[in-house]
Amino acid sequence: MAKKISNSFSNKELLGFYEKMFLIRKFEEKAGQLYGAGKIGGFCHLYIGQEAVVTGILSSIQSEDTVVTSYRDHGHILARGVDPKYVMAELTGRKDGISKGKGGSMHMFSKANRFYGGHGIVGAQVPIGVGLAFAHKYRNEKKISRVYVGDGAMSNGQVFEAFNLASLWSLPVLFIIENNRYGMGTAVNRSAAGKDLYERATVFGVEGEKINGMDFFEVSQAAIRARDHIYENSMPYVIEMDTYRYRGHSMSDPATYRTKNEVNEMKSNDPLISMKNKLMKDFKIKEDEITDIEASIKKQIKEVEKFSLESPLPELNELFTEVYL
């Protein structure tokens, strides 16, 4: 496997992906701490544990491609290249936030980075993502829309309607099911009948597969396969990621629905640690090189924190702006 990957990515590129994963992890840890300190309010859904999914997909993305996801969106917007300080300032509800403090954790967008949110209503992003794909096809652009959807959301009706439309109209969209095994406190086998979730798309003629979403390399390979499939066949594709969130659903989750053992077992499979080990073993990257990257990210996160706390609250007249164009 290592060989195959090394054909496609230089060590420098691979280190870049690791850096992104590490950035997301440290960013989310900091967000959790700032929530604990009362600096972030409302709902705050952390992405810790699922970093390999978004980074693996990133390895297949063209900068013009579009992305849309749910409320668990911090990692996704960081992966799209938005400066973390604007993301953190959104979490603290400040003027310099990416949505000027008006959207918060669940509602972040960046047109410049082709990131279309940040949607709080379960399932809503899926037809929206199909609509992005519709626009790409309509304009004859060689772009792919990537839509992330949770395991819980996979039982929401509009998701099925979206699969049907995407296939019926041959739209360039990749559905990425982030099956982290729970939708809030409901294990996937208590919310979804049938076998694998991706089969809910395949019945509509969308080809797809299920893979290990805890491994960057596996995700990356599947993402590239999917991209090629979409280019060659002008048809949608679906990948179900077997993944896991280490933290609670939102910050105030009693987490009584799963055992500590289960969480610890999944932690032994940490996507960051496994990528780091592979980089050293299979790609002969020196540990120093990696720890240097880690140190600079940690330093960056301190600056991000400071920025997000020093940025002022939005001006009061912001309340009434941007309701209409």
Binding site: G103, L313, P314, E318
Partner: peptide, 11 residues
């Protein structure tokens, strides 16, 4: 007010 609910505490 006739606006979607903003996130920032003051707004």
């Amino acid at each position: 007010k006739d606006v979607p609910m903003p996130y920032a505490e003051n707004l």
